[in-house]
Design a binder for these strands. Structure first.
Lengths: 340, 340
DNA sequence: CCCCGCTATGAAACCGCTTGCAATTGATCT
DNA sequence: AGATCAATTGCAAGCGGTTTCATAGCGGGG
């Protein structure tokens, strides 16, 4: 059995109340007494029991981070950014992914583990997700990450995909004004995909073009699926002088590989653009023109908002939008890569 | 204030003892009563308070995962594997990285958060790490991941780097029997680097060769550092008909890029091999010959051991070693890539 | 008819800590 | 000198559960 506050009290010859006061920086404790207590604590290597403390204080110093998946660099960077900031704020991070089957169910269970976390960050990427509905009655402060939930009563960290996507499409149009642009998305219900698709359609509309249905393809964000699909299309795309705009870097890399496998040149025969600017974008040859998403910053900012809310629970819901930025490399032609 | 067991008791018109019994599946509760209680629970959306429960049961259902870093796919995959298995076993995952400065200090703090976690997985990759010493008196069951701590009293998940590295070096020697082999490691104190270096030296010794000191280089596992370093050496290496064995894929990719930038051909002018078989290995051109490390499996296995120990605390310490495997692709020449 | 044993339930102790309130003490004020 | 006050410290009441032990009800055997 670990040492308890009582052991410390006995050793320092005071009551447990006094020990508790020393612990909680109530500076109402006499200097000498405090010293005795602190010595006792040190000698015993005492550490207060989290549960007992949490029971009174209703605080665990743990924040929950719920992601739709843990696969790939995208989420990994979010975690990294979140972890760093959480540490900075004195919190630990409980991480969980919500798979398709447990879905909302489980978020509530995680949350519902009453008091386990002081607050949560939930990343919502599926429109249909049951989470979205169950979010309303979360028993703890919530920050929604990258999920555009209207009428939200909670804090939100949004990413300006829209803007990034629009800029990218404009960039593509400026280089290839008449080319068809093939859009490769994730699932049709994926919010990011929807955003990017909207941006794509909007920009085309601006120049009076209407994308043909067959140029809008929903895949699943994975390299493998994209590679299989692209392998069957690259020749056709190339023949039509198309440009490919993939909704993430993995799929873009797959298209590049498929093109190369078909002995096409990228970008000469088939320009390709990605999204996110993960490490992948710099490792493929040619390197990917893409849109930089501030992944680590997303995690950090979400934690920051959460911590702020924990400190002042009554302030109005906050919404921050992080900027994105087009990164031009070689996979699309255009200006020779600027150092990057 | 959330609903408590007392609310449920009142609503079901029973005592809290009975509610508690229903909750804990003591099947000593009368069927009718149980039904009433369950209805009350459902109607109130009651969930037992984690702290109160933990206080009595001394159990949080949270496991800690402490990694040296959260950067890159390597750790990301470990987390993914661990998370999946943890869920399967009914646990949540608390993730933390130990940075150089807080080091052991903090592991104890995390652990020391008395009772916050029921057990921990600690990945130790630095010889000098203070963690290693503070590990002995962990107050909770511990699984050491990939750290070869001798005389260990805890469970261990080891990776057979040694074997993988030896096979890889033999493979290189079979292709380039007389070439100098340049070893690019992480920090000199990094345990994995040490293992791989030992394997490298052992195999060379077997064929009666002694690596020259200048062919053993310690960097820091990062792409950037490796790229800078390699950029200055590739011509020299190529001239000496050297082969590069990098201790991870990132550095191998950097060497490939540096070589390409110097208009060398890989593998013709400079064969390069990596380690880990992260996604990177498949995305570079040429793709990397490397050693597959079962990253997700490492995380999963560690959780598995931990859960088993939590169930039977007295069983003798267990040690499992996960196998690695050489993956031959194009960055080193050799047999034409087999499908992969 | 009484006692026994079994089942179902409630009362209360306890887990370790925080905190409001009362008590003690020595000093200051009138 | 008596009262007031500030500074310390201890007492004890929870926080919300689990669990031991006692109690109540009830059918059956002697």
């Amino acid at each position: 059995m670990a040492t308890s506050i009582e052991d410390v009290a006995r050793r320092a010859d005071v009551s447990i109340s006094t020990v508790s006061r020393v612990l909680n920086r109530h500076n109402v404790v006499n200097a000498q007494t405090r010293k005795r207590v602190e010595e006792a604590i040190a000698e015993l290597g005492y550490r207060p029991n989290v549960f007992a403390r949490g029971l009174m204080l209703r605080k665990s110093n743990v924040l929950g981070l719920v992601l739709p998946d843990l696969h790939g660099e995208f989420y990994s960077e979010i975690i990294r950014g979140a972890n760093l900031k959480a540490r900075e704020c004195g919190y630990h991070l409980l991480i969980s992914s919500v798979t398709a089957d447990d879905d909302g169910q489980d978020v509530l269970a995680t949350i519902g583990a009453q008091g386990l976390v002081d607050g949560m960050i939930v990343m919502v990427t599926e429109m249909s997700s049951r989470i979205r509905t169950s979010l309303g009655d979360a028993p703890v402060p919530l920050v929604v990450l990258d999920g555009d939930i209207q009428g939200a009563t909670h804090d939100t960290v949004a990413i300006d995909h829209r803007n990034g996507a629009e800029s990218l499409v404009r960039h593509l149009l400026s280089l290839y004004p008449t080319s068809p642009i093939v859009f490769l998305g994730g699932h049709a219900t994926n919010l990011d995909t929807i955003d990017r698709l909207n941006a794509y359609q909007k920009v085309l509309a601006e120049v009076g073009r209407e994308p043909s249905q067959k140029d809008i393809v929903y895949l699943d964000y994975s390299y493998e699926t994209a590679f299989r699909y692209a392998s069957e299309r690259v020749l056709e795309w190339s023949a039509a002088r198309s440009v490919v705009f993939a909704a993430n870097d993995e799929m873009a890399a797959a298209v590049v590989d498929a093109a190369l496998a078909a002995t096409l040149d990228v970008p000469a025969d088939l320009p390709v653009a990605g999204f996110d600017d993960t490490r992948i974008a710099q490792l493929t040859r040619p390197r990917l023109t893409t849109v930089r998403t501030p992944m680590a910053q997303m995690g950090a900012k979400a934690i920051e908002l959460l911590c702020e809310r924990l400190e002042s629970p009554d302030r109005p819901p906050n919404r921050v939008t992080l900027p994105t930025e087009v990164v031009v490399r070689e996979s699309c032609g255009g200006p020779p890569a600027p150092g990057s």
